[in-house]
Design a protein around this nucleic acid. Structure first.
Length: 480
RNA sequence: GCCCCCAUCGACUAGCGGCCCAGGUCACCACUCUUUCAAGGUGGUAGCGCCGGUUCGAUUCCGGCUGGGGGCGCCA
């Protein structure tokens, strides 16, 4: 039984790169009919926040990922929050100490740094100072009231990582320093907690970012010291920003929360993230979740880092918007409409018309955020005209033509797209006017915009009375 | 300083010794469709980092170099 986990640390919103890691774990679990487990790694008590944990869970769910075991749903290997498992880590740590595989170290940060900078070797980090302390040294440290950390006694040997994505990677453990597994506050470090948790939660495959590849020997060494076989490892390529450095705030939006708030669809994000560092045999680009699950494999993962390209995400987003029905889009765009100032009741009241508008405007939408400005002139009673844009559409004697069209509109019955179009086209013909010279300015007068859906469907949706009123208002404005 | 990973168009990638004077997608450009804006259609610009091997033959295999990324925390 395949068991994989995603183990975020709740120190911020769900990052795009982490979301991709979560996604790959999820796909692998589903593909292999295994379990996907969510574990909260909150041993950094300084930076971990409950709000972040909640937001990460929300965003994962929004993305469309679901888990069988986790802090919210429980499970047979819980608890799933590391701060609730402290006794477990302490027990294992003490076991290692009693077996001589780990030891207490009383050095302060300053002492370590001092010895490092004064030493002749360029070697960085801890110098294994407390490895073999005498009983008297230990008791004198204790007498000083120092709180020790527990360090792992790193053996001098080769450690082989058989990585599913990268193949065999060999490390010389002798180049590692004895690293801390328990902090002086008796909270485990990441390296120790992951191993104990992956072990006790019976994780079979550890799928994580390449930034952990260099740390993997430490983890394997701990598994071995505990007399256990390590899980299989798969280190995915990293997600970088457009300048090839780590994706960070400098690159704009980096959390899935931000994309969600900017009007991106979960399906688009899901699909896009899957394409980063993975590809199907035939280079297919558009996948449903189900197809992705069927096609996914770790072997097909690319070894080189991938740059997050917002432009391609945007393209996919527009594509997924076009694929959705207008009632679906209406539902998910409600928060955006409300944010633009429409009340819930107002939106409910105009539901039918907004859906029609979405139908007509759908193919122009890039994000859900575009919806308010695209639908505003259908909902509002009155509109205003931007004088800058107006300059583009001026034509001579337009006022006169406009009032004639207004009169014409009054006579149209039924007020439907095809009838309106036929009437106005006939009008242009009779006056010997080029259609385009009439259509564009008319669009501007009626909507305040120079872009939008087909002119006649817009006129129909705006409605006879409002069209006439808008023309009147416009003429009033022009003639003083 | 030490250790590890990676290297095909601007970006994501296909390629697993000859089918490749390198294919697809996004972006970009042009044309087309068109009442606007899009979407769509057609076409185009653009890439195997460098140097040595191996081989009849290297994008593909090996080595070095260079470049990029990562790790070496009482952060995860």
């Amino acid at each position: 039984m395949v068991r994989v986990r995603f183990a975020p640390s709740p120190t911020g919103y769900l990052h795009i790169g982490n979301a991709r890691t979560a996604l790959f774990n999820y796909l692998f679990a589903r593909k292999n009919s295994g379990k996907f487990i969510l574990r909260i790694e909150n041993t950094d008590t300084e930076r971990s926040k409950k709000e972040y944990e909640e937001s990460i869970l929300e965003d994962l769910k929004w993305l469309g990922l679901s888990w069988e075991e986790g802090p919210d749903v429980g499970g047979p290997f819980g608890p799933y929050r590391q701060t609730e498992r402290l006794q477990l880590y302490r027990d294992y740590a003490n076991k290692l100490v009693s077996e001589g595989k780990a030891y207490r170290c009383w050095c302060t940060k300053e002492e370590i740094e001092k010895r490092r900078s004064s030493g002749d070797q360029q070697n960085s980090g801890y110098d294994n100072y407390c490895r073999n302390l005498s009983v008297s040294q230990i008791s004198s440290f204790q007498a000083e009231g120092r709180n020790p950390v527990i360090r792992f006694r790193v053996p001098d040997k080769k450690v082989v990582v058989n990585d599913i994505i990268r193949g065999t990677v060999i490390f010389e453990a002798g180049t590692l320093n004895d690293f801390v597994i328990m902090k002086s506050n008796e909270i485990p470090t990441f390296h120790f907690a992951v191993v104990i948790d992956d072990l006790s939660m019976q994780i079979t495959h550890v799928i994580r970012g390449e930034d952990h590849l260099s740390n993997t020997p430490k983890h394997i060494l701990i598994f071995e010291a505990l007399g256990c076989n390590p899980p299989a490892f798969a280190h995915m390529s990293m997600t970088l920003g457009t300048d090839r450095t780590r994706l960070s705030k400098r690159h704009g939006a980096t959390s899935v929360r931000q994309y969600r708030e900017n009007g991106y669809l979960a399906e688009a994000m899901f699909n896009y993230l899957a394409l980063l560092g993975w590809s199907s045999k035939d280079n297919q680009e558009i996948f449903s979740k189900q197809q992705l699950i069927e096609e996914f494999s770790l072997q097909a993962c690319n070894k080189s880092n991938a740059i997050f390209d917002p432009a391609k995400l945007l393209w996919l987003n527009a594509l997924y918007i076009r694929k959705k029905s207008s009632s679906e889009i209406f539902e998910i765009s409600l928060p955006f409409l409300e944010k633009a100032g429409y009340s819930k009741s107002e939106l409910e009241q105009h539901k039918k018309i907004i859906e029609k508008v979405i139908d007509v405007e759908k193919e122009k939408l890039k994000t859900l955020q575009d919806i308010p400005e695209r639908t505003g002139y259908f909902i509002s009673e009155d509109i205003s005209w931007n004088s800058e844009i107006e300059k583009k559409v001026k034509i001579p004697e337009f006022e006169k033509t406009l009032s004639e069209i207004s009169d014409l509109l009054k006579t149209i019955e039924p007020f439907e797209k095809s009838v309106i179009e036929a009437t106005i086209r006939r009008f242009c013909e009779e006056r010997n006017l080029k259609c385009i010279e009439v259509f564009n300015p008319l669009r501007f007068v009626l909507t305040g915009q120079t872009k939008g859906a087909g002119l006649f469907e817009m006129i129909e949706l705006i409605g006879k009375q409002r069209c006439i009123k808008r023309i009147e208002n416009f003429l009033k404005l022009k003639t003083g």
